[in-house]
Amino acid sequence: MDYQIDELDRGIIKMLSRDGRIPFSEIANELEVTEKTIRLRYKNLVQNEIIEVVGVVNPIALGLKAGAIIQLKVGQGMIEKVKTSLSQIREVRYITITSGEYPLLIQINVQNQEDIRDFIFKMDKIEGVISYNTIIQLENYKNTFEYL
């Protein structure tokens, strides 16, 4: 990626992180530039994959009131296969490779505790999963998309 963001880009990103539907005219006014400048910068940020325009869903509003973070220990040479299998499961909303004893970490959102149990049974059938550590989320205090 060759595109280097500057302070104006950071300002645009920060404002859009708070409200993705904020009018360009309001951003321009706040950052003391023209609306045309904001439109061009926004287009560059999207084209250079620095920002992505998506609707963020509140899982609780959809009835997904239970969640868990699960650390997975996998067999030698099986990370890619397990990661691919997990990415096909609807309940999995986040997958990352980590250091340490458990090379994969996932986060799931489901309707209730029974669904967490059912997910564990489903995950247990994935070839390459040796063991796992399940951390039940009791309450979420912060979930932000602001990075600047």
Score class of each variant (00 low, 15 high):
Ile126Ala: 00
Met78Trp: 02
Leu86Gly: 09
Gln111Ile: 12
Tyr3Met: 09
Gln107Ser: 12
Ala68Asp: 10
Tyr42Lys: 07
Met123Arg: 06
Ile70Val: 15
Tyr141Asn: 09
Asp6His: 08
Tyr102Phe: 15
Ile22Glu: 12
Ile97Asn: 06
Ser99Tyr: 14
Tyr141Glu: 10
Ile95Gln: 08
Leu8Gln: 00
Tyr132Ser: 15
Val110Arg: 02
Tyr3Phe: 15
Lys36Ile: 07
Lys65Asp: 12
Leu31Trp: 03
Arg21Asn: 14
Leu105Ser: 05
Tyr42Leu: 07
Asp118Val: 00
Glu91Pro: 04
Pro59Cys: 15
Asn58Val: 08
Ile50Glu: 00
Ile126Asn: 05
Tyr94Met: 11
Tyr147Gln: 10
Leu105Asn: 03
Asn29Ser: 11
Ile130Gly: 08
Lys36Trp: 01
Glu127Thr: 13
Gln137Met: 14
Arg39Glu: 03
Glu32Gly: 02
Asp2Val: 12
Leu16Val: 08
Asn109His: 02
Lys65Phe: 09
Ser85Arg: 07
Met78Tyr: 04
Leu105Trp: 00
Thr134Ala: 15
Asp19Gly: 04
Met15Trp: 01
Gly75Asn: 11
Leu138Ile: 12
Met15Ile: 10
Phe121His: 14
Asn143Asp: 10
Arg21Met: 10
Ile108Glu: 12
Lys65Val: 12
Ser17Asp: 04
Glu139Cys: 00
Glu7Cys: 03
Asp6Thr: 03
Ile27Ser: 01
Glu91Ala: 12
Ile27Trp: 03
Gly67Pro: 02
Asp2Trp: 02
Tyr3Gly: 10
Val33Arg: 08
Gln76Met: 10
Leu16Glu: 07
Gln88Lys: 13
Arg18Asp: 08
Arg10Ile: 04
Ser99Gly: 15
Ala66Glu: 05
Phe145Gly: 12
Val74Ala: 04
Ile60Asn: 11
Gln107Pro: 00
Gln111Gly: 07
Asn109Leu: 01
Gln113Arg: 13
Ile95Pro: 06
Phe121Ser: 13
Ser17Cys: 05
Asp9Leu: 05
Ile95Glu: 03
Met78Gly: 00
Ile106Gln: 02
Ile22Trp: 13
Arg117Met: 04
Lys65Gln: 10
Ser85Cys: 05
Gly63Ser: 13
Gln88Phe: 06
Glu101Trp: 09
Tyr102Arg: 05
Leu31Glu: 00
Met15Ala: 04
Phe145Lys: 09
Asn29Ala: 08
Ile51Glu: 01
Gln76His: 13
Ile60Tyr: 14
Asn133Cys: 08
Glu127Tyr: 11
Glu127Pro: 01
Ser87Ile: 02
Met123Gly: 07
Gln107Val: 10
Ile60Ser: 14
Glu35Gly: 11
Gly20Thr: 03
Gly55Met: 03
Asp124Phe: 06
Leu72Tyr: 14
Ile130Phe: 10
Asp124Ala: 15
Gly20Phe: 06
Leu40Phe: 08
Ala61Phe: 02
Ile38Cys: 06
Pro103Met: 00
Ala66Asn: 06
Gly67Phe: 02
Met123Pro: 04
Leu31Tyr: 02
Leu40Trp: 05
Arg18Gln: 13
Asn29Tyr: 07
